[in-house]
Design a protein around this nucleic acid. Structure first.
Lengths: 130, 130
DNA sequence: TTAAACCTTCCACCCATGGTAAGGTCAAGC
DNA sequence: GCTTGACCTTACCATGGGTGGAAGGTTTAA
């Protein structure tokens, strides 16, 4: 199976697959006589796993850890759970930051008249010659 | 006023100020006889404006637009308002994405036993040999 | 005088790709 | 057998928003 077929089957782009190989997130694919990469079903499982993990929001480095747990049949589910809980905490922190930002922006929008005058609460607030 | 003083007074780092100058977000600072950058109060106003806009969550490119409105005494506050409303929409979309991610992660965490068993709903979900 | 603490420019790095170039290969149609 | 187009390969540049460090000049305080 060529890289573009593997790409279609996994939902990743060929570029991304080569990149993942280069940074050793995934193992080097075997090559045909022509030097083309060749993928089998086992490779596809890995590619799909990474695609789903990325789509779920895990970074490439987080995927590296998840992959190593995926491959480790001796793993404890508690290790996986800790990883995902920590990720969840980071996501929640990020949400809080964005909510804070949204409130600030909403406040600015509400206080700006939005007319033909140059006088503008948003600009004033950011300039704040205090 | 040296760059490190301007940095302290604005809340930006000297590196960041030089970077902003390089990408022409801010104008080139005047130089002393020794080649050192020299900042006055007017420069500081700009630096503080950018610092506050960045801290509020605007990207550098958005800051560029805000700065041009800041400098334009003929501006209409409606132009500023539109800019900030669009930003607000982008932030809200980002929040929705993260909330979706949080729900997925929460679901995964809840379904993982978190014990010494290798069997793990998180890994299974990501592997999903369907 | 000497050391520390500045300043300058420039180059490299982070993340997760996308774009593009230059060149090799393969499958189909003529 | 030849051409065309769609693949494949590697390699380098760009993104955003800076940070870190090297190499070298300046200033300041002891």
């Amino acid at each position: 199976m060529n890289i573009s077929q593997a790409a279609k089957a996994s939902g990743l782009s060929p570029k991304t697959i080569r990149y993942y190989e280069r940074i050793e997130l995934i193992g080097a694919a075997s090559r045909g006589d022509n030097g083309y990469r060749d993928y089998d079903e086992e490779d596809l499982d890995i590619l799909r796993f990474v695609q789903r993990a990325r789509a779920t929001g895990f970074s490439v480095e987080e995927c590296r850890q998840l992959l190593s747990l995926y491959r480790d049949t001796e793993r404890h589910s508690s290790e996986v759970k800790v990883l995902v809980q920590e990720k969840l905490e980071r996501v929640e922190a990020q949400i809080q930051e964005l909510l804070q930002m949204r409130d600030t922006l909403q406040d600015l929008v509400e206080r700006c008249p939005g007319d033909e005058q140059a006088q503008c609460a948003i600009i004033d607030k950011l300039a704040e010659q205090s």
